[in-house]
């Protein structure tokens, strides 16, 4: 996905920064209570309907996680490869997206002429090109890194340019008068100015990078995670499938949390 999610990153629902008033207080209790109730109802319903090959009860999923998924060296290797792919794709997307964003956003001419081209590519559902990535990069990690990167780079470019749009040109001139280098301008004038928009881009970029890598992993069903999910789905073995997906979900949550921690660390000067 992506689509003209394009110009919308900044418009999307604002992230809440509400300080939790103590563990399990009011709203949090309601949230966790609902989740636990759903899990219990799920357990009861799945047991009551018996083994239908479609839905496994949570306890069976936990058992499959401990006895089937985690001890399996091949699955562990596939999961580690996926984490490496996401990390590599994200690193390239962030570095490349920032450089392209600064280059395009540097001048008004660059913004007016090149930004629409960026938005044009962002508007195309990139999944149409997925087979092309596999033809070009093979079925190994390279294709998945490239596809993840192609998803993750756009939010970074778009938000870098959006952040640069309203930099006061006088700050840049002032810095230049004081004899600062180009890199110095980027480091001390532009970067502090765009941090808010940039980190919003980084958060979306992580989700998109994971989306790209997972799409490519599922598309290539002869190896890696796609192979195991297809195998479990084809043999109607829901417990290990749910367990494998739970591990991937936990990985995705952890990766999102790391981006948020980095954001909090880098933005602490903003208070």
């Amino acid at each position: 996905m992506s689509g003209p999610a394009a110009g919308t990153i900044a418009e999307l629902a604002p992230a809440r920064r509400r300080v939790a008033a103590g563990w399990l207080h009011g709203s949090a209790a309601l949230r966790w209570g609902t989740l636990i109730t759903i899990a219990v109802l799920w357990e009861v319903a799945a047991r009551w309907s018996g083994n239908n090959g479609l839905v496994a009860p949570p306890t069976a999923i936990l058992r499959a996680l401990v006895t089937q998924i985690l001890p399996d060296g091949q699955i562990r290797a596939a999961l580690i490869v996926a984490v490496v792919e996401i990390t590599a794709a994200y690193a390239i997307a962030v570095a490349g997206g920032f450089l392209i964003g600064v280059a395009v956003g540097w001048t008004r001419l660059g913004r007016n002429s090149l930004f629409p081209i960026v938005l044009f590519f962002y508007a195309i559902p990139q999944v149409a090109f997925l087979p092309l990535f596999v033809l070009g990069f093979g079925i190994g990690p390279a294709a998945k890194i490239a596809f993840g990167c192609s998803h993750g780079i756009f939010p970074v470019i778009v938000n870098t340019i959006a952040g640069m749009r309203n930099i006061n040109p006088q700050y840049v001139s002032a810095a230049r008068c004081m004899g600062i280098s180009r890199a110095g301008i980027v480091r001390h004038v532009i970067f502090p100015h765009i941090t808010g928009s940039f980190f919003a881009g980084l958060r979306l970029s992580m989700t998109m990078t994971m989306l790209g890598v997972i799409l490519a992993e599922l598309y290539v069903s002869t190896a890696g995670i796609g192979y195991f999910t297809r195998q479990f789905a084809d043999t109607f073995d829901p417990a290990p499938l749910f367990a494998l997906i739970s591990v991937l979900t936990a990985i995705a949550i952890a990766m999102n949390a790391m981006v948020r921690l980095a954001e909090r660390h880098w933005l602490r000067w903003k208070g």
Binding site: A13, A15, R16, R18, G26, S27, A28, L30, R31, T34, L35, R203, T207, M208, M210, L211, I214, L215, L218, T229, R230, F232, A233, L241, I245, L248, T249, A252, I253, N256
Partner: peptide, 20 residues
């Protein structure tokens, strides 16, 4: 307050994971 964080948290996970 109870469910907005849940909805936004799930949306931050690539739902493609659940495609299988």
């Amino acid at each position: 307050r109870a469910f907005e964080p849940l909805v936004s948290g799930i949306f931050a996970i690539p739902i493609t994971l659940f495609f299988p």
